[in-house]
């Protein structure tokens, strides 16, 4: 079987700071990381792969996204593809999923596509389902575990609004993966990193994957960002450090004053 894992390099949002003076996001010196949801998706793909199965990671991004792919190869992916072209710039989820679909079609004979449930930066959770629909594949989102792949079917454990479901889905299939609480990212060893250098990393342009220029990037994006700005600041809160009795009193005051109803 052939599995594709879609990964994205994202700024580490825990480090992103808002510049108080200018009110803009300051990304200087903020590290880029492999989207943690995607790292989990890759882990699932590697965990459920059978003998002789191939795991290919794909990303659409600027040249430096190669770093994320190198990490995936060190973790255990067999092959990596970087979709990199000026034509892809400014893509919203639609244009992103379109480029990924074109890449999957070029790879050919793909049985499963593993996506992250969402990215740290965009966080839309849309790219996975959009790929599924365009490919005509089955779709299961919020997947915490791909339990089994047998014949033409995969069984997944999926989170719902109020619990879990076990779902059986016919291949070919797109799963959008949500890190389970016990997920511990693998830290590749020096040997893994060296071995990864021998694996194949390919770069494809828009021309390589086909499709019209008007379907990629900014031109192929139905949504437009008109403005971005830091979130409104909440009113200044107070921080107190008092005796336990006084602390309790202060909390009770707030609760009583505002008159909350359960």
């Amino acid at each position: 079987m052939k599995h594709v894992v879609c990964v994205k390099q994202v700024p580490d949002t825990t480090e992103v700071k808002v510049d108080e003076k200018t009110g803009t996001i300051c990304r200087e010196g903020v590290a880029s990381v492999l989207n943690p949801f995607d790292e989990f998706a890759l882990n699932e793909a590697l965990r459920v792969r059978g003998e002789g199965d191939e795991v290919i990671v794909v990303t659409m991004g600027p040249p430096q996204a190669e770093e994320a792919l190198k990490k995936c190869l060190a973790i255990g992916a067999d092959q990596a593809i970087l979709l990199c072209d000026r034509a892809f710039a400014g893509a919203d989820t639609m244009a992103t999923s379109f480029a990924l679909v074109k890449a999957v079609q070029k790879i050919g004979q793909v049985d499963m596509i593993f996506c992250g449930q969402e990215t740290l930066d965009g966080g839309t959770a849309q790219v996975g389902p959009e790929i599924a629909r365009q490919m005509g594949f089955s779709q299961v989102t919020y997947v915490e575990a791909v339990e089994q792949i047998k014949g033409k079917f995969a069984t997944c454990r999926k989170e719902t609004d109020d619990g879990y479901e076990r779902i059986r889905a016919r291949l070919p299939l797109v799963v959008a993966c949500l890190p389970s609480p016990d997920f511990n990212p693998t830290i590749p060893s020096v040997m893994d990193i060296i071995a990864a250098k021998r694996k194949v990393m390919t770069a494809w342009t828009a021309e390589d994957i086909g499709g019209g220029a008007e379907q990629f990037g900014l031109a192929g994006s139905p949504t437009q960002v008109v403005k971005s700005y830091p979130p409104p600041k909440k009113g200044q809160g107070v921080v107190i450090q008092e005796s336990p009795e006084d602390s309790v009193q202060r909390i009770l005051e707030i609760i009583s004053n505002k008159g909350f109803t359960a």
Binding site: P11, T13, T14, V16, V18, I25, L120, D121, G122, G123, P222, T223, Q224, V225, V226, K227, S228, Y229, P230, P231
Partner: peptide, 15 residues
Amino acid sequence: PAFGGNLMADIICPN
């Protein structure tokens, strides 16, 4: 909200 809530974005869909 985007970027983990660090940024707000106004979006339109004209076409």
